[in-house]
């Protein structure tokens, strides 16, 4: 039985890319909390997960590489999933950032990131054990 890194890491290494992108978006929202006219943006985690599981839009987690030289970049990934937040209470200056919500989302996102890191770390130590044969 060959050791397959893709199988060992499963969806988790790709999930890290999603959390990374989301970290950036949420930090933008928090930084622009006082900017007039700024519209908060986010990625719908469940939707991306559904797409990934459905397999119909597998490219949402990874750019389709049509050439060997293509490098999968987290910069361009999830561009389609980035959406403006729905406004519940708009500010007079057109800003749609709800700092409390953004902070909660940021905390949740970093917890998810750390969870995924933990899982990956365990998988790697599992593989290491397999290599050593102890």
């Amino acid at each position: 039985m060959a050791i397959n890194f893709d199988k060992a890491f499963g969806i988790h290494d790709k999930a890290l890319l999603l959390f990374e992108r989301r970290t950036q978006l949420l930090s933008e929202n928090i930084a622009n909390a006082d900017t007039p006219g700024y519209k908060a943006r986010d990625i719908d985690f469940d939707k991306v997960l559904q797409n990934a599981q459905g397999g119909a839009q597998g490219q949402s987690l990874k750019l389709q590489a049509t050439h060997k030289g293509h490098i999968d970049s987290s910069l361009q990934a999830f561009a389609d999933e980035v959406q403006y937040r729905k406004v519940e209470q708009s500010a007079a200056d057109g800003n749609t950032v709800d700092v409390q919500k953004e902070k909660a989302a940021f905390a949740e996102n970093s917890m998810r990131y750390q969870t995924t890191m933990q899982i990956l770390s365990r998988r790697i130590s599992g593989l290491k054990n397999a290599f050593r044969g102890e």
Binding site: E28, N32, T35, R41, L75, Q76
Partner: peptide, 18 residues
């Protein structure tokens, strides 16, 4: 007066700095 700047890095990616 604050303004958000969308820095276009790639075609699809950007970052919004203040």
């Amino acid at each position: 007066v604050f303004e958000s700047v969308l820095n276009e890095v790639g075609q699809q990616d950007e970052m919004a700095t203040v």
